[in-house]
Write a protein that binds this DNA or RNA. Structure first.
Lengths: 196, 196
DNA sequence: CTTGCCGGTGTCCGTTCGTTCACTTATAGG
DNA sequence: CCTATAAGTGAACGAACGGACACCGGCAAG
């Protein structure tokens, strides 16, 4: 029987395509079909290679699972000044999942839509989304979501001898020193803005 | 035999936990174990319910796949002013995958790190990440990545009788009118900033 | 009280799964 | 050219899988 060889790059491309389409790992048989193999064994060997290379791991029950290097939706590049990669390079670049990158504690993280421009100079504009982690201890200059006088706002967090204060990032607003108790909603871990 | 009932909320919680941990859909047997059932059939019935409710769909080969309502890593909330939900509400709120939300064409999307402050007033700061879609047609006031005089920059895109121009979002910089050809890297679809 | 339905149990069956083994073919190095 | 190694073939195996079936308990409506 004649054999069939695919370049590693092409194999990765087809696997990524499958993962994006089906959002699950292919079975041995499916992977074989994907690569044009007639034997499941060849697919199984390729999986073991992927494991060695850190592109796949085994979860509970010994089932395969992709790593974010493989599944991530975007290719990670350097600075703008570096320019763009050639098509040949592209396939080899690692990918990244924004979810995994931005969210460390999914069970405690919420998304809020920003209203108001009090954090304008910090690059947080009305309509932006902020990822807020609840229950985290805020540090100086963290952006926090806090309730002051029954209203929720975004501010820089600070603390000095007189106690806690909240700073806006916009000269049109002033520092706030909460008189009574300060209700802390959480710490802003990331800002996301989508155009269009 | 005594029967076993779990609230729908608890079922969803356990399923989400499994998905986060294993990044795949449980088999009927695994789902039964997760819910304390002794029969696979009860699990299969629950899956059909999930399908009706739009939390799961079937992919190629009839295999189950989660929707982003189920898998997404963050809970989606309203404006900051709306406050925070009570723990009871939280379990019922839809979740969102940032990857799916931000990236429409994964195969054409790249991530770049921003250097320079020429887009400061647009809330794009040094160190931010921008998601760039290659090959898209830019419209007026889109933020684009372009090569001017051998250097890559982020600018607002514009066009008038004299041709194409690029505007910064910072009074310290000036409008650029490319003399020769303009190399367009892509259109910025989203901005992401991670703290810490 | 009776009836119907929903949601669980228990069992079964044909298919697919992952894994292993012996064998064969392609490729690169000496 | 010969040889070692990597990679694909083909067949076999038990285990797990999805799906189907009959059955039954709890509960609410009539």
């Amino acid at each position: 029987m004649s054999q069939h060889r695919l370049s590693p790059v092409e194999k990765m491309r087809r696997l990524r395509e499958f993962l994006r389409r089906e959002q699950r790992f292919p079975s041995h048989a499916e992977l074989a079909a994907l690569y044009g193999y007639t034997s499941k064994n060849a697919a199984a060997r390729w999986l073991r290679r992927l494991e060695q290379l850190g592109y796949a791991v085994r979860g509970a029950g010994g089932k395969w699972r992709q790593t974010s290097r493989l599944l991530g939706r975007t290719r990670l590049l350097g600075a703008v000044t570096a320019g763009f990669p050639s098509p040949a390079e592209e396939e080899l670049v690692d990918t990244l999942s924004l979810d995994e990158y931005l969210i460390e504690r999914p069970e405690a993280t919420f998304m809020l839509t920003v209203t108001g421009d009090s954090m304008r100079d910090a690059g947080i504009l009305p309509g932006d989304l902020v990822l807020v982690e609840r229950g985290a201890q805020p540090h100086r200059n963290d952006v926090v979501v806090a309730q002051v006088d029954r209203e929720w706002t975004l501010k820089y967090f600070g603390r000095d001898r007189q106690g806690v204060y909240l700073d806006p990032a916009n000269p049109a607003y002033q520092r706030i020193r909460p008189r009574e108790s300060l209700v802390m909603g959480g710490v802003v871990r990331a800002v996301v803005r989508k155009y269009r």
